[in-house]
């Protein structure tokens, strides 16, 4: 009988890359584009969420801010993002199949959250704007 954690990691493929997933593109710090899963037989897909937060800063005013984050299966990645690295992440903002990809940054000031126990990684994304 397979170890349950190994089975859970296999099941991740169905949870993360099947029905609820969206196509994503990563660019690593060396400038390499990763848009296919390991093996190259399928596009890279992940679970993308755009949560909305209502936070209370010390002034007492409530600030409404989005929190986009991406869940990926580590085994599908040729290179796994590490804390302290700067990556580009492109993901669609709309749930439609042909939605354009929006460019986000994964930067060192907010570390990714590893779920290495069952093989996922959670990336927190930053909005970008054109540098002058």
């Amino acid at each position: 009988m397979a170890n349950l954690r190994a089975q859970a990691e296999k099941d991740l493929f169905y949870c993360v890359e099947k029905d609820w997933s969206v196509p994503v593109v990563l660019i690593d710090p060396a400038g390499n584009t990763i848009d296919r899963a390991v093996g190259g037989d399928r596009p890279l897909r992940g679970l993308f969420f755009n949560d909305c937060l209502r936070l209370h800063p010390d002034t007492g005013e409530r600030i409404v801010v989005g929190e986009p984050w991406l869940l990926l299966r580590r085994k599908s990645l040729k290179r796994v993002p590490e804390a302290g690295e700067t990556w580009i992440v492109k993901a669609p903002l709309d749930p439609f199949a042909d939605a354009p990809l929006h460019t986000f940054l994964m930067d060192p000031t907010r570390a990714p959250e590893p779920g290495s126990t069952i093989g996922y990684i959670k990336l927190f994304l930053r909005q970008t704007e054109q540098q002058q």
Partner: peptide
Amino acid sequence: AARVNLSAINDPSAKPAQIAAALANYH
């Protein structure tokens, strides 16, 4: 927001070295 050279990063003809340079120089 983070400031980065999006023109270089989103250019389909950009080479990995150019994209890496844009990433290294982000604010």
